[in-house]
């Protein structure tokens, strides 16, 4: 498969001081959903803004759809759709007026634009609100409008920067379905950044974890997890005497007593090691009350790579921060 986006030592320094991106190199293939995952301030938005030619690189470059972001920004902008992290629709216009305005930027023929806009509006259930001023929209409605504003020009590449930030769980799930649908039906390449691990995990074919403006790891969700080397088997035993025996299980890479009677065994592959463990338990007549297997989650990968626990950043708080920020900007 040919790569549709390739960055070459892409670097962005803001105001000569803040190094937001430090020689970033990623390659994205045509037709895939590519997830950019990273903690706050990692440089996700900066990467997107550079690729969509909203800002100019300090050094390095990127090729998007065959065009250089330093030289052919207009050609790039014509073939991409963007859903930025912050809100960009005009509050003084109605939803449909906003979409029509965007469609005119791309010279979409009027009849075609109208047809497409109506279809997109129905897709995100904004039919009843389309003729209301955007000022009167709720946060979630506004976010949905932003999403379809990025699709009005029928793009080849779609950039989604935190598309579900601040949405309720139901709407988020709708959004996910919708993103998958777009990719399957419209044959678009999608670049997605997200704060939600489940989101990147559920949607992306491949993922790059970035931190401090650098790529820390790239691969499919499976690859990233298998790099962690090992699943976890938790064994809870009936009597304390058996703890020692369980911890002595020869096939485990690592073992830890987490609770008085619970042992956490790290094994390279639980599918293979579990039967062995069961025979070992029988052979040593260990009495167990509970046995559970845990495959590593992307959370663990993230924690291992960035040293930060993304789960600690409470989404609810984060959402509040975002909304406050918008207010301050106003």
């Amino acid at each position: 498969m040919a790569s549709i986006i390739k960055t070459e030592d892409l670097t962005k320094v803001y105001n000569g001081r803040v190094k937001a991106l430090d020689k970033l190199n990623i390659e994205i293939e045509k037709g895939e959903i590519y997830g950019l995952l990273g903690p706050n301030g990692a440089g996700k938005t900066t990467t997107i803004n550079l690729l969509v030619t909203r800002i100019y690189p300090t050094s390095g470059t990127a090729i998007v759809n065959g065009f250089d972001i330093r030289k052919n920004s207009l050609d790039i902008r014509r073939t991409i759709g963007v859903v930025p992290q912050d809100l960009t629709t005009d509050e003084d216009l109605t939803g449909i007026e906003n979409l029509k305005l965007v469609s005119r930027f791309y010279d979409v023929p009027q009849a075609e634009a109208e047809e497409r806009i109506n279809r997109l509006i129905s897709m995100v259930n904004l039919d009843d609100a389309k003729d209301r001023l955007v000022r009167q929209y709720s946060g979630g409605m506004r976010k949905r409008l932003e999403l379809i504003a990025g699709l009005v020009n029928d793009p080849e590449i779609l950039f989604l920067d935190e598309p579900t930030l601040g949405l309720d769980v139901t709407t988020r799930n709708h959004m996910w379905q919708y993103v998958k649908e777009i990719q399957e039906k419209l044959d678009v390449t999608i670049i997605l950044t997200s704060h939600y691990l489940e989101e990147v995990d559920a949607l992306s074919d491949r993922i790059s974890i970035i931190d401090h403006g650098k790529v820390m790891a790239t691969g499919t969700s499976e690859e990233l997890k298998s790099n962690l080397r090992g699943d976890v088997i938790q064994v809870t035993v009936k009597s304390e005497n058996d703890v020692e025996k369980v911890m002595a299980f020869p096939e485990s890479v690592d073992s830890k007593l987490t609770e008085p009677n619970t042992v956490r065994l790290k094994v390279s592959n639980s599918d293979e090691e579990l039967p062995k463990l069961i025979s070992y338990i029988n052979a040593n007549s260990i009495q167990i009350t509970k046995l559970s297997v845990q495959k590593p989650s992307l959370d663990d990968v993230f924690l291992e790579i960035t040293g930060k626990d993304i789960r600690k950043e409470d989404p609810a708080d984060y959402r509040q921060v975002m909304f406050n920020m918008r207010r301050l900007r106003r």
């Binding site: 969509v52 902008r77 014509r78 930025p84 912050d86 809100l87 509050e91 930027f105 791309y106």
Partner: peptide
């Protein structure tokens, strides 16, 4: 610029 609308114009293929 303050309200973010300019961002939408800057990513559009317009001069």
């Amino acid at each position: 610029r303050r309200l973010g609308v300019l961002g939408r114009f800057l990513i559009a293929p317009i001069r």
